[in-house]
Computed example of a mutant assay.
Amino acid sequence: MSDVNVIITAVDKGMDIIDGYEREVEDLRAHVVFDIHSVIAAVEREKSFVEQEMDDLCYSSYEDTEDDSGEKADMLSRQREMYDSLLYQTSTRGEELESEWRCLCGQTFDLAEDSKRLMADYIRKLNRINYSGGATGYSSSGHGPEYYVVIVDSQKYPQTAEHIKMAQTMGFPEFVTLGRLDAAERRKASLADVKASPIYDRDEWPMAVFEEGGQGADVAYIEGRDNRGAGSSIGWQMRGFPDGSRVRVRVI
């Protein structure tokens, strides 16, 4: 593998680390929110128990001739006041903590996304260097890279990026195999059962240019400008990749 391909793969794996970090932050945020709401719910339950006891005591006092319930009623009243105060404090402070955590996690996600965007731009530039002037990207030993990386920018092509991301989430592959030769046949197969629209393009994932495309591909209607712009960007990035290459299509 060439030095450039080694760097591309390393940067891509670095982006995986950031993805994992984002998932951990989201898990932590969810746990914190759950704990906050659990504490508030626990206080609410204790308060409802006290109120139920007060209701039971009030009902039983009508049938009991002995006036021995006053002391218990006073105790329950004090407990209810205590839980009212505690519930107010936990709810107020809980909302503040939840807001603080959401803000902190949001800042963390923004930083992570900015970092991945810079890394993705670096990959695109490295690809340009690697394949400029007809370079093959292979090392002198003749071995190709572990895999190539293509970037789909959600800021430039939001609909295509969302479709690819959702399809990959549903189980469609993120790593695909480049096979330009039979692309037309695969495109025909993937779109055979999807009616053409006079307004929108039919976007496929995996794309027909990949061997994993064709019949069974996920197809979505998206705006033509978005679809064609993304297709052009992906094609440009893969212009030096040989057929049979393993390609990772990463959405940022």
Rank of each mutant, 00 (worst) to 15 (best):
residue 168 Q to F: 00
residue 192 A to V: 11
residue 19 D to E: 07
residue 14 G to C: 08
residue 30 A to N: 15
residue 169 T to G: 10
residue 3 D to F: 15
residue 24 E to M: 14
residue 77 S to M: 11
residue 4 V to M: 11
residue 162 E to T: 02
residue 219 V to C: 01
residue 222 I to S: 00
residue 32 V to K: 06
residue 139 S to E: 04
residue 82 M to V: 09
residue 173 P to V: 01
residue 34 F to A: 12
residue 160 T to Q: 06
residue 87 L to T: 08
residue 148 Y to T: 09
residue 124 R to I: 15
residue 221 Y to C: 00
residue 84 D to S: 06
residue 196 A to N: 06
residue 153 D to Y: 11
residue 110 D to C: 06
residue 250 R to F: 12
residue 100 E to I: 13
residue 166 M to P: 08
residue 17 I to V: 15
residue 31 H to V: 12
residue 161 A to Q: 13
residue 56 D to S: 15
residue 135 A to R: 09
residue 169 T to F: 11
residue 67 D to V: 10
residue 237 Q to I: 03
residue 59 Y to P: 00
residue 22 E to R: 04
residue 27 D to W: 15
residue 133 G to T: 11
residue 174 E to Q: 06
residue 175 F to A: 01
residue 12 D to H: 12
residue 64 D to M: 12
residue 28 L to I: 11
residue 212 E to C: 02
residue 210 F to P: 03
residue 192 A to Q: 12
residue 136 T to H: 08
residue 151 I to M: 05
residue 201 D to A: 09
residue 170 M to A: 13
residue 158 P to L: 08
residue 91 S to Y: 07
residue 44 E to T: 04
residue 68 D to G: 02
residue 157 Y to L: 00
residue 87 L to G: 13
residue 125 K to E: 07
residue 18 I to C: 00
residue 212 E to D: 04
residue 124 R to W: 07
residue 252 I to R: 02
residue 130 N to Q: 07
residue 10 A to M: 03
residue 40 I to H: 02
residue 146 E to I: 03
residue 29 R to E: 12
residue 241 F to S: 07
residue 18 I to Y: 03
residue 226 D to Y: 01
residue 66 E to W: 09
residue 106 G to A: 11
residue 130 N to F: 01
residue 183 A to D: 00
residue 200 Y to M: 12
residue 148 Y to G: 10
residue 160 T to N: 09
residue 219 V to N: 01
residue 182 D to N: 14
residue 41 A to C: 12
residue 86 L to K: 05
residue 9 T to H: 03
residue 234 I to V: 15
residue 252 I to V: 09
residue 99 S to K: 15
residue 35 D to A: 09
residue 181 L to E: 08
residue 146 E to Q: 07
residue 21 Y to I: 14
residue 167 A to Y: 01
residue 40 I to W: 04
residue 136 T to L: 10
residue 100 E to Q: 13
residue 153 D to V: 00
residue 81 E to P: 05
residue 237 Q to E: 02
residue 109 F to G: 10
residue 122 Y to F: 14
residue 30 A to G: 13
residue 44 E to C: 03
residue 115 S to T: 14
residue 87 L to K: 15
residue 130 N to G: 05
residue 119 M to D: 02
residue 45 R to Y: 05
residue 26 E to P: 02
residue 244 G to N: 07
residue 146 E to P: 02
residue 91 S to Q: 12
residue 108 T to Q: 13
residue 47 K to Q: 07
residue 29 R to P: 07
residue 188 K to E: 12
residue 103 C to I: 09
residue 211 E to W: 07
residue 32 V to C: 05
residue 242 P to Y: 05
residue 31 H to E: 04
residue 127 N to C: 05
residue 107 Q to V: 10
residue 144 G to M: 08
residue 234 I to Y: 07
residue 222 I to N: 02
residue 1 M to C: 10
residue 23 R to P: 04
residue 116 K to C: 13
residue 175 F to T: 08
residue 135 A to H: 09
residue 98 E to Q: 06
residue 163 H to E: 03
residue 237 Q to W: 01
residue 171 G to V: 02
residue 177 T to I: 11
residue 184 A to E: 08
residue 55 D to V: 11
residue 47 K to W: 04
residue 190 S to H: 05
residue 174 E to V: 06
residue 155 Q to A: 14
residue 185 E to C: 02
residue 137 G to A: 07
residue 141 S to D: 15
residue 215 Q to G: 04
residue 240 G to W: 04
residue 18 I to N: 00
residue 114 D to G: 14
